[in-house]
């Protein structure tokens, strides 16, 4: 008989690997939903505890989906959430614009604030799809798997987000 105990999530090594692999992603995902990093950490914690509680029942290949679904359900039980705030990295400036140019820096700051506001005003469903793609570099297939919806639905939300953002930002440019 094949010894599967080494592979299932009750094994600490396996569990640790699993945590390493998914905790940051799950945290981001939850943050895009609730906009509160403490709450997001709690969701992460609680979801991994559920995984551990059910470690003997979960097929390893389904564990990721179980994890994200659990977190999602936990979130659905709490309706209220904060406005999602994002910080941004200093940008690499191209097109010959001097980075020190105060006008440019101000414009950039304003633009990023507008953009961040527009993202916060997306529906929860649009925002999480859009940010998972933009910040976490996730492909539609993977997002569909995380959210437990079809790839078509992901694409629809993505387009919805783009249309709304374009409306909000208009012809503003950095």
């Amino acid at each position: 008989m094949k010894d599967t105990s080494k592979e299932n999530l009750c094994n600490e090594q396996v569990f640790r690997e699993f945590y390493k692999h998914h905790s940051r992603n799950l945290f981001n995902f939850m943050y895009y939903k609730c906009g509160n990093s403490e709450q997001a950490s709690d969701y992460v914690q609680e979801s991994f505890i559920r995984i551990f509680e059910n470690c003997s029942k979960i097929i390893p290949s389904k564990a990721k989906s179980f994890l994200f679904t659990t977190a999602n359900n936990l979130f659905l039980n709490v309706k209220k959430h904060d406005k999602v705030k994002l910080s941004y990295k200093e940008q690499q400036v191209s097109d010959g614009i001097e980075k020190e140019d105060p006008h440019f820096i101000l414009r950039e700051k304003e633009y990023m604030e507008q953009l961040q506001n527009a993202i916060a005003n997306l529906t929860d469903a649009q925002r999480e799809v859009f940010l998972l793609n933009r910040i976490d570099d996730k492909k539609y297939r993977e997002i569909a798997e995380i959210l437990n919806i079809s790839q078509k639905a992901v694409e629809k939300r993505m387009m919805g987000a783009l249309i709304k953002l374009r409306e909000a930002l208009g012809d503003n440019k950095v």
């Binding site: 941004y88 990295k89 910040i135 374009r166 930002l169």
Partner: peptide, 17 residues
Amino acid sequence: QLKPIVENSSHFEAPAF
């Protein structure tokens, strides 16, 4: 129209974890 939106969005980051 979408380029600035799409490109700049990638510069955002979630808080530290």
